[in-house]
Write a protein that binds this DNA or RNA. Structure first.
Lengths: 196, 196
DNA sequence: GTTGATGGTGAACATTCTGTTCGGTACAGA
DNA sequence: TCTGTACCGAACAGAATGTTCACCATCAAC
């Protein structure tokens, strides 16, 4: 699964070159327009090397994303190292995006396989749904629980989108403050007064 | 520009067949995987007919979207036929999406050219930014104006996404109520008390 | 109805991109 | 030093795109 540690030094080098080439290209043009030929030209590897390492160009991005999302899960989405009232590990997510900025920026600019963004979206939405179910009696919600979960995930991602789009002018902590001010009041409004 | 009114009856027929075929296919598989051959097979038109009417398969969707977005603009985004405090014509948008459900549903399921969703997103965001600038003194905002605009557009779209995803179980009016409860409190929280 | 114009048809074609194969070379790691 | 593995590059088959063309169908106007 993770070919980062083991494997031949040459393999790692090739994979790195290819991933970097693709991320670079994605800052210039949209993903679908990029051809395998362009990738291997920029990476300066042979065609057969490319296909020895990846199934296709989608696979390049997917494997990179799988790795980064794995980190996200184990570092920020497991356990409950954040205040329960927050419902989502928003601060952790802002920090995570900042840490892996090149990948996320390329993803955004290249308008790439939307399925990745959607993967994050789903993960956040489900996480929020679970937290909400714990935080409030479902029957007491004035709005369906899964709408609230969708809203939370969507609003958080739209802040992240804005942040990336504008060259990340704020710190994760400032973004977290904005998130708390802007997004959370709506959630508290539909929860019956309870758990602060 | 708009080939719906003028043009030969046969042209209109062909275009309609092709658009419907594509929308149908998009309910089954993602846009990128769909080939022109599949479209013309399902539409039952000749290959050359397809290319006589459209530049490529993106063009099919684009022309349809351009038309529907044109309607959206003239019916819901111009003037200010909605309460100024709402900042966005959310109810109008919910109604509009319901009215053109097949297109929006296909767009969503097919994970199609994200640029269309982004087009709507941009339009909403800019609209919100303009309204915000009128509704509040920029200097008095505790959060940058364009973040709020982005948030509004993103949150509204995420509600629409949920709505489409779940087969539109609510009326536009119910969705509007949810939007008001869930999304607007955050906006009021960052506006200095003013204009109710 | 005849007629002239416009659109539709299917087959053929060049082109582009994809993904695979293979013999030979270079390098990593033990 | 030696063995396995990755890289290389060229060649290739297959798929999909978009174009062209000669022929046929349909329109609407006379």
């Amino acid at each position: 699964m993770d070919r980062r540690e083991k494997a031949d030094r040459r393999s790692r080098r090739s994979r790195r070159l290819i991933v970097d080439a693709l991320l670079g290209l994605m800052l210039e043009q949209r993903f679908e327009r990029i051809t395998v030929q362009e990738i291997i030209d920029r990476a300066d590897v042979g065609r057969s090397t490319f296909y020895a390492q990846f199934r296709n160009k989608e696979d390049v991005l997917e494997s990179e994303f799988a790795w980064v999302l794995g980190l996200l899960h184990e570092q920020h989405l497991t356990g409950a190292q954040y205040p329960a009232a927050h419902l989502l590990p928003s601060l952790g997510l802002f920090r995570h995006v900042q840490e892996h900025r090149p990948l996320y920026a390329a993803q955004l600019r290249g308008l790439a396989v939307d399925s990745h963004t959607q993967g994050v979206h789903r993960a956040l939405r489900d996480r929020a749904a679970r937290e909400l179910a714990l935080a409030a009696d479902t029957a007491e919600l004035t709005v369906p629980l899964d709408v609230v979960a969708e809203y939370l995930a969507g609003a958080l991602l739209s802040l992240i989108q804005w942040w990336l789009d504008h060259g990340m002018p704020h710190t994760p902590e400032q973004m977290e403050a904005i998130f708390q001010q802007l997004v959370m009041p709506g959630v508290r409004a539909v929860l019956p007064e309870q758990r602060r």
